[in-house]
Amino acid sequence: MSAYLNTRVSLFSSQLWLDGELDSLISVPDDAVADALTRRGLPQLAAGFGGLTAPNQDSRSLEQRIIAQVLDETRVMIRPLSGDARTFLSFWTARFEISNVKTLLRSKMTGERPAAVLARLIPMGAFGRLDNQDLAHAEDVGELLRRLEAGPYAGVVRNVRRAFEESRDPFNLDAALDRGYYESLTLRALPVEKAVGASFRNLMANLIDRINLVWLLRYRFNYKLPPAQVYYLLVGSRYSLPGTRLRELAALDSLEAVLAALPATWQTRLSGVTDIPGVFARMEHIAAEQALRVLRSNAPGIARAFAYLILRERDLRAVRAVLRGRHLGLAEADIRLAVQRTPAEVA
């Protein structure tokens, strides 16, 4: 079975976009876009881009097609897996369903029509665990949360209802859902880390540390939340930035102070960064390099599959930016700037 997964991952990895190849998608003529996408194993995207002037092309359907592509590939890779590895990879796709939950919650707050919100939800296919029809027809946020509490995401939604009843603040809902999801993900990752070892653990470490650092900076300096609340909203971590370090960082008063208080290796990695998007981009770049190393190594299949999915999603975000940029008629230079994946300081 591992031979099947390894072969699959190796085949899929030949579809990843190197930076130069992505650049060619920016400059390729309109009628050659579909062909370029098909060559990279993106038939779902190519199907919607027969011609970039097609009237039915819009960003929402593009988003849905991109996720459909990721789900399709995950479905293929998950086939030979069982036990903890299968549970983990399945739950990795649950991010999209959590995003659906957020959409549903917002629609209830704004009184959006069920039909309209249903059309905006991401079709989860075989990975779908929620009855979207039923949830979309809930009368208000309270009823929706009660229904979610009785479903497969009870663990993620726990506390969300009470937090919402206390504050009626949509931020509380989003933050609680995100935290709940990543807490559940790290729990599911633990047995896989034990079984697989460093290659998988490093990928998880990069993911959770990046999330925690970026959230910490955003909550603390963009939303001006008090340190204790910021710390509470972060994901419980057992990686490079454990709880004690995160508490120290959350208590600091400026971005510069936080960056200066990071471990020495992190300071080297983030040298020259001056803002939060820069931190995110640099850390994502580091995570992508790490994922590429795992993908090219002889690490166990689940680690390589996870590394591939990390890289593929990064690729698809860039492809989406290129296609949107082309659709909006932006200049090639502007699109290049938007999809620049290698921070200038690193390059």
Partner: peptide
Amino acid sequence: EEVRGLLAQAGWR
């Protein structure tokens, strides 16, 4: 005041 938001988030009753 600093802990009010945290307690709400934590489901404190």
